[in-house]
């Protein structure tokens, strides 16, 4: 079978990087100027700024730098991809902070994560509002739909409703022991789960087994509504 994995034409990563930095600086309420960007230590900063301006992503007025409308949209998408990727690798896969930060830098480029894929990740994560550092994740089209009618694809069991049926999608426990214990009780991805009550302790039903659980454990079980 012919591989479809040929390289798509892409913008040099340094340019994405700069767009991203301008975003975070602006988020912190800083005036964006050449001096500030110089501190980042980019090689050939003038050249990259020049390219950004040529592509119509930023406007340079003397020392000051501003996004153009397209530039701002592009930057927003990069930030969105970056922060969603952080969430994915931090919360779902439980990788180390070093790993999820590096992964996010790899995945933030449009040439890596398409818009459709980004929205899928966003939905999968339940349209999270912030990244693990607590900074806002720019909303995508999928999130706006969410505010009208779409329910999040996956939610922690702790957010699920009482007396409704769910299916377990994944479990992200703090330690393996917990995972194994849950597994042998039948609490595994693919199992149907039903919340009997949340207080004074969580009681869930898997198959015909009722299990009382600590809230910490329930928070680590991600579910979607059963069809």
């Amino acid at each position: 079978m012919k591989s479809n994995c040929g390289q798509a034409p892409q913008r040099p990563h340094e340019m994405d990087e700069l767009l991203e930095h301008i975003w975070t600086f602006r988020e912190k309420g800083k005036e964006i100027n050449k001096a500030l960007l110089t501190e980042l230590g980019f090689e050939n900063l003038p050249k990259w700024l020049q390219s950004l301006e040529t592509e119509g992503l930023i406007k340079i007025q003397g020392e000051e730098i501003h996004y153009t409308k397209t530039g701002e949209e592009e930057a927003q998408d990069i930030i969105r991809r970056h922060r969603l990727a952080e969430r994915l690798f931090a919360d779902v896969f439980n990788t180390s902070e070093e790993t999820w930060e590096r992964q996010a830098c790899e995945l933030e480029h449009k040439s890596v994560l398409t818009e459709e894929a980004t929205n899928a990740v966003c939905a999968f994560l339940g349209h999270p509002p912030t990244c693990p550092h607590g900074r806002a994740i720019p909303r995508g089209d999928c999130c706006h739909e969410y505010s009208h009618d779409l329910k999040p694809f996956v939610t922690p069991l702790s957010e699920a409703k009482i007396a409704e049926h769910y299916r377990i999608v994944f479990i992200t426990p703090k330690h393996h022991m917990r995972l194994d214990r849950l597994a042998v009780l039948g609490v595994l991805p693919g199992s149907d789960i039903y919340i009997h009550q949340k207080k004074p302790s969580y009681v869930v039903r898997v198959g015909e087994t009722d299990i009382a659980l600590d809230p910490e454990i329930v928070r680590d079980i991600y579910v979607k509504k059963a069809a």
């Binding site: 917990r178 214990r181 849950l182 009780l185 009722d210 299990i211 009382a212 659980l213 600590d214 910490e216």
Partner: peptide, 9 residues
């Protein structure tokens, strides 16, 4: 340890 207890009928 975790509170993970089977509740019999």
């Amino acid at each position: 340890s975790d509170f993970m207890m089977e509740i019999p009928p």
